[in-house]
Amino acid sequence: MEEHTLIQRASQGDEQAFAQLVERYQNQVYRQALRMLNHPEDAADVTQEVFLKAWRNLPAFRRDSSLSTWLYRLTDHAAIDLLRRERKRQGDASLDDAAQELAAQIPCPAPTPEQAAERQELRRAVTQGLAQLPLEQRRVLVLRELQGLSYEEMAGLLSLPLGTVKSRVARARLALAKLLGDHR
């Protein structure tokens, strides 16, 4: 069934139609949440929360934007909210500080080209490096690289000027490269 038909039906309360939308998008939503939070259980909870919000708010969703972008926006906000709540619970210690401390403790995997032949290993290193980035850098890389949003879509989602988004992505890429590697 066409997506717009599914959206139409789901927004009128058709659970079967909504189930098909969940099937289509749950992997991407979960992946985004997992890479933001680096915690499988929290990521599953956030995914659940996102689809509940989507269910409630579908009538306000306008079909001239894509459903995926809308879901990524909900996921981004839900993950940020969770991290903020966690931060509050843990007192004043900033999450980013905690992540940076962690990064300082854990030796960087720093794969050389030879080791890179082990693709699985490299993938693990990259996702670990991503998890160690400060929140704002991690956020833009997840939206840009994992979810494939355009810079224009990101600027809208983050309420930032286009140039700021581009330069934030560039800095996040450099920070990840520094965590992983050996240059400069």
């Binding site: 979960y30 890479r35 990521a43 993938r123 690289e145």
Partner: peptide, 10 residues
Amino acid sequence: ILRTVEDAPP
């Protein structure tokens, strides 16, 4: 690598 990360949900 980031673009091809696969994370299967529960």
